[in-house]
Amino acid sequence: MADMQFSLDFPGSPKAVRHVLTDIRGRAKEGGSGPDTVGQIEIVLAEVLNNVVEHALRHEEEGEIHLRATHTAQGWHFDIRDTGVPIPGGLVPRPDLPSPDCPLRDLPEGGFGWAIVNMLARELSYVRADGCNHLSFSIPES
């Protein structure tokens, strides 16, 4: 399989994220990835990009996201850059999965995002440099 690389620039809005996810799903299928890999790419990218929109770019009306994807025989690698505020603490959040073992009224309605990312992504790294957030991760071919 030939290596493939592409870049996308898009505004930090939920609608733009949805469009990009659908686009990348198509590209991953075309690139020959199986349904498990395509599904993992989509959910991890969704959580990472939603986090950029909802937190890093929360107060930026014209925040932009830059995404670069590289596909090799081993799998996919993504670099995502945004101009928003840094992740608090300067580290990738590594929360425990919220527990479902509780009464109905206490069931978690959030807090799943970074837990999902940590479970599925490999080589997850975060750097703050040049006034931008740089997050990268890999999804292996399964």
């Binding site: 996810l21 989509e42 959910i43 969704a46 959580e47 939603n50 109905l104 009224r105 069931l107 978690p108 309605e109 959030g110 799943f112 995002g113 999902i116």
Partner: peptide
Amino acid sequence: DFIDSSGLGAIVAAMKQLGP
């Protein structure tokens, strides 16, 4: 064919708002 953590949270919320 796709839900993210926000969608999951919304489904949990929909169940909670039905009450016990």
